[in-house]
Computed example of a mutant assay.
Amino acid sequence: MASTYDDRVPSNGTPLYCAQPPQPERVLRPDLSPERARAILVGQSKWVNGTVIRYCFFDELGGGQSRDQLDEVRSAFQDWKNIGIGLEFREVADPSESEVRIGFRQGDGSWSYVGVNVLEHSTRERTMNFGWDLTSPHGRATARHEIGHAIGFAHEHQNPFAGIVWDEEKVYADLGGPPNNWPRTTTFHNVLRKLSPNEVEGSDWDPDSIMEYGFSAGLIVQPEEFRGGIDSPRNLSAKDKHFVQKWYPPIAAKPARLQPFQSMALSLDPGKQADFEIIPPETRKYELGTFGNSDAVMVLFEDVDGELRYLAGEDDSGVDMNGRVTVKLFKGRRYVLRTRLYSTWGSGNVALMYW
């Protein structure tokens, strides 16, 4: 049966592109040190490692999708997981139980919000959309590209260290025509706008990244080797795999047990994480918090039938106050507290406790 999706590539070689929605830029206090600001911005979209990201096929228009389209998305999630990372992906049927809600609305392009930014949207809203056939080579790459966004990757060609010089008017004209038909604002946001160096980890451009677009000849002026165009990557690159493993290494060790009123020192490098198991001795409200000069994110999960479910969280980055979480915990139940460090200053000593 013929596909109802538009997966055309016109004679000028321009493929259909991901049109990532604009997201508000975080504005930090101007008195933060450059090192502290960079640590916060680099890590702000990342999930705490070990998170189970639940995704739901969100059919808000009631049209239904063919099994091959759904299976390609499932396969794309599995490709990322097969790298050997600490994140888990789980399909659920109820949108209210999901973090990632996937639509297939034609005419709305393909796109995804980035990392934990998906949590800012109502459970009635899509956080990812696919607008063309996912079973073609270009469509398969699109599925992996959008999931890359959902776990924290930005567009690779917007890397400020890439050294790309565009023929900007040709880019606007190319993407303003079929099949994308983008207004100039969309082209600027997704192609010409360079990310802040503070948002980017690493210094090299990876033209083989699944987060890279392919471009037709004449759009890139520099580097000279790409004046003839750049192919659309079809698979996860070696650097894609390196960085996703760096952000989300496999979790092998059982978390250490944390007792009430026990202060636990956090000897962490920026971007690293410590996990703790909590089994409360009594049912009551508890407080959980960090101590010391640090920017950190704490996320508490409850073990429900062997699956960790989000319960509460706090991100204290960018302010000179330690984060606190107040939550009712139940005697004998198992909880896991994950704490990721952005940065420290002053003495650099950081501790965590619940009481």
Rank of each mutant, 00 (worst) to 15 (best):
T123D: 12
G292F: 12
R257I: 11
L192H: 05
Y286P: 01
R309S: 04
Y172H: 12
K246T: 13
S75F: 09
G62F: 06
E201T: 08
F89I: 03
R257F: 07
R309A: 02
V297H: 12
L175V: 11
E97M: 10
G289C: 05
P250Y: 02
F89R: 05
P270T: 05
I278K: 06
D204F: 08
G313C: 07
K246Y: 11
G163C: 08
G131I: 07
E146A: 02
W355I: 02
R26E: 12
L192M: 09
F291W: 10
W355M: 14
V42Q: 15
A37V: 00
K239E: 12
E156Q: 14
G13E: 11
G318V: 05
D231V: 15
R67P: 01
R67L: 13
R101T: 08
R338D: 01
E120I: 02
K254T: 12
L258M: 15
S11N: 05
V200I: 14
G292Y: 07
A296K: 02
C18G: 06
E97I: 07
R184A: 14
A19S: 11
I210T: 00
V171T: 04
L16C: 02
S347C: 10
I147D: 05
V221G: 07
W205R: 05
E168N: 08
E212Q: 15
G229W: 04
Q222C: 01
G289I: 02
I278M: 10
L16M: 11
G318P: 04
F57T: 00
T186M: 14
E99I: 04
V297S: 12
M264C: 10
V171E: 11
R54E: 11
W345S: 03
R29L: 12
P24V: 04
V299R: 03
V297D: 01
H189F: 14
G64S: 09
W47K: 04
I102T: 02
D108E: 13
F330K: 09
A238W: 07
R184E: 15
Y172S: 01
T4P: 08
S96L: 05
V100M: 13
D316G: 04
Y248D: 03
Q78E: 13
T142H: 00
K194L: 14
D71Y: 09
D208G: 06
E97T: 09
Q106Y: 08
W205C: 08
A37W: 02
T186S: 14
A2K: 15
D79R: 12
D303I: 03
I151W: 03
G107D: 07
R8I: 12
I151S: 08
I40P: 05
D68T: 07
G218H: 09
E91F: 10
N180L: 00
G63T: 12
F261K: 15
L300F: 11
H157K: 06
H155V: 11
P10C: 11
N117F: 01
Y248A: 10
K328C: 09
V42R: 15
S112W: 03
Q44F: 05
N235K: 15
R101Y: 06
S112C: 15
D79Q: 13
L300V: 00
K241H: 02
R340L: 03
G115D: 09
G313H: 05
M1Y: 15
A150L: 11
V191C: 13
P21K: 09
T14D: 07
